[in-house]
Every structure is written in structure tokens, then in C-alpha cells.
Design a protein around this nucleic acid. Structure first.
Lengths: 167, 167
DNA sequence: TTGCTCCTCACGTCACGTGAGGTGGC
DNA sequence: TTGCTCCTCACGTCACGTGAGGTGGC
């Protein structure tokens, strides 16, 4: 974290980030940092074979954005494509139109995924609620009785709970 | 879709679903249906080698829930574990406590992912907004001028836009 | 010398995708 | 015969995970 604090006082701070710095600050792994660099998604300083990677500080932000886009469901191919899109276009008009089209499609997928996740979250939420009642239960015929338990009424029970508990 | 409509009138409808039915209705692929069956996540009727799979209708719901949980970031291992958890417990108390603990952890991860996705969605949203202005642009020095374009002011531009457009 | 952090192969893993080649009923 | 849907291998892919074995400065 403070690997850069050992600089001689007064000297300009060495801003380069090591692979480990990138991994820690970017909340990812060493492997991923090296993999992204090999794939050209982030770039380090020129170096000889086997020597350590040194990343300019702006590459950390890059890494974080790429991580966020990955978490949002974009593949590395799509991310590469988006990052290269503008420079492959002849005019702002064309670039803006291609970029918009791609982003709209991704947005639509992203929203579908978010709706699914909201549904799952809500279902897991009410399942957790129900489990507080089940935690008090001492019915002797434990697993068998659950499927027709009247305390936790079947009518209000969602699909996920049905699958993971009430069968 | 209506593969079951050819039944002799009056006979009880054949409710079995084919692999193709499962894939279509579950909005997934033939490969995934077969893969999940092989993994024991869904189950088909007994059959001889090479004959067609026939799924009871309740397995479709199962397939859909598994898909949703996958989309929400759970691995097949975790899903299997959750589905088997209750039957491996001796009491409702124990089962409820173990299930709650697992679900809470998954919920926390799910919410972190959703927050990331919300941020990305909002950033892509304002980028799309900005691109409507860029679509009108006919500046001669197209890609080079973008980085210090005053119409689309740099101050209000988020990280993703910075990465994909303003550099 | 020990500990820490970095390095490069290189094989492993997870959740399927993708042909190739074959079957069965209208 | 053609078309459609199903089947089983079996190799491919994507995005890393996971050792094994080695280096360099405090």
C-alpha cells in the first residue's frame, strides 16, 4: 500500500504501480492483471524479459473500468471492440452511430440481467424471512413434513423457495 | 410448441417435454439442457441409450430457476449444494441456519454485482446521451480533437466515456 | 539465510459451444 | 427422398486458477 513512501524526501514520488499494486487497488488478481496486459487491454512500461511490470497510474482506472464492464456481462472481445471502435471510424458521425448501436444492444442485455437479478434477490429475501420461522421449528418428521407445512404456507412461496426448501 | 396437440382426442394429454421443448421454453440451448441433465440438476424419464429424453413439466420450472441463479452469479456447484443442503441436515433448525448463512453470503455478492451494474448502466446511459451531440459533429480533425472538445465538457464525463471515447 | 514480491511456463477448470456423423417418424 | 428433430462423441473456447520452479533486493 505504501510501497512508494520509501522515496527520498523531496524527490518526485515514483508513481509507477507494480503488478501487485494493480491487483490490490483494482481488487483483482495478479493473474488477471498479467492476462489483461498480455491481451493488450492495459499496458505497462517497456521492459526486458523477466523484469517487473510497471504500470502508469492511469492504467489502474482502465483496469477498474474493464473489471466493471466484465462484471456487467461484456466479454473481453466486446470490450476490446468498443475501445478500438472510435479509431477505426472516419468521422464523428459514423463513430457515434456505431458506438450508440453497440451500447444500446449491451444496455438492453444488461437490463434484462438486472431484472433477473432483482427477481432473484427478492426471492432469496423472502426465503430468508421464511427461514427465520423454520429456525424455530422442531417438528419430528423434519424433512418430510416441510412440503405440506401449514405455518409456511405454500401459496405465498416463490419458485426458488419451492426448489430449495419446500420439496 | 404444439407437439403435444396430436394426441388422440379424449386421451389424457402427453405432458412430457422434449429436450427441444425445454430449451425453447426455458430460453436456453439444447446443449445446456443435456448438460444439466448429465450433471443431475434436472432429471428426465428413464430411457434406453440413444432414445429421446422426456422431461416432466415441473423440470422446466427447475431449469428456469437454475438459469436465473446462474445469471445471478451462482456456480453450478453452489446451486447443487443449495439443492442438496436440506436433505443433508438432521433438523429444521440446523438446515435453516446453514441455508440462511449460505444465502446471506450469496445475497451480499449479488448486491455488490448489482451496484456495479447500476453504475455501469448509468455511465453507459450518459455516454449515449453525449453521443447524440457527437453525431452532429463534423469537426475536420475527428479523432484527435475529441480529447479536448469543449462542447462535450470533460468535467462531466465519466470514467467509461473517458476510456471509450474521450481519449 | 529468511521472507517477500515479482517472474515465466504450462496444465487445469468451469460451463458450456460447435461440428461430425447417425437415427426415427411424417 | 427430403426435412425436421432428436442423439452421442469429442474437440474447442473463454477467462482466468493454480502450482512448479526461479529471480532480486531488504
Amino acid at each position: 500500500m505504501d510501497g512508494n513512501q520509501g522515496d527520498r524526501p523531496g524527490s518526485p514520488p515514483e508513481e509507477w504501480l507494480s503488478t501487485g499494486d494493480m491487483a490490490r487497488l483494482g481488487e483483482t488478481t495478479l493473474r488477471t492483471v498479467r492476462f489483461y496486459e498480455a491481451e493488450g487491454l492495459i499496458s505497462a512500461q517497456q521492459r526486458e524479459d523477466g523484469s517487473q511490470r510497471k504500470f502508469p497510474p492511469d492504467q489502474l482506472k482502465r483496469l477498474q473500468i474493464i473489471s466493471d464492464l466484465r462484471d456487467s456481462g461484456l466479454s473481453l472481445q466486446e470490450i476490446k471492440h468498443l475501445m478500438a471502435l472510435k479509431s477505426g471510424c472516419a468521422s464523428a458521425k459514423q463513430a457515434a452511430s456505431e458506438m450508440s448501436a453497440t451500447l444500446c444492444a449491451r444496455m438492453a442485455e444488461l437490463e434484462r440481467r438486472m431484472e433477473t437479478m432483482q427477481r432473484v434477490r427478492s426471492e432469496l429475501g423472502s426465503m430468508l424471512e421464511m427461514l427465520r420461522t423454520c429456525g424455530q421449528c422442531s417438528h419430528p418428521e423434519f424433512p418430510r413434513h416441510c412440503s405440506n407445512c401449514e405455518l409456511v404456507d405454500r401459496s405465498g412461496v416463490e419458485r426458488t423457495t419451492q426448489l430449495l426448501w419446500k420439496n
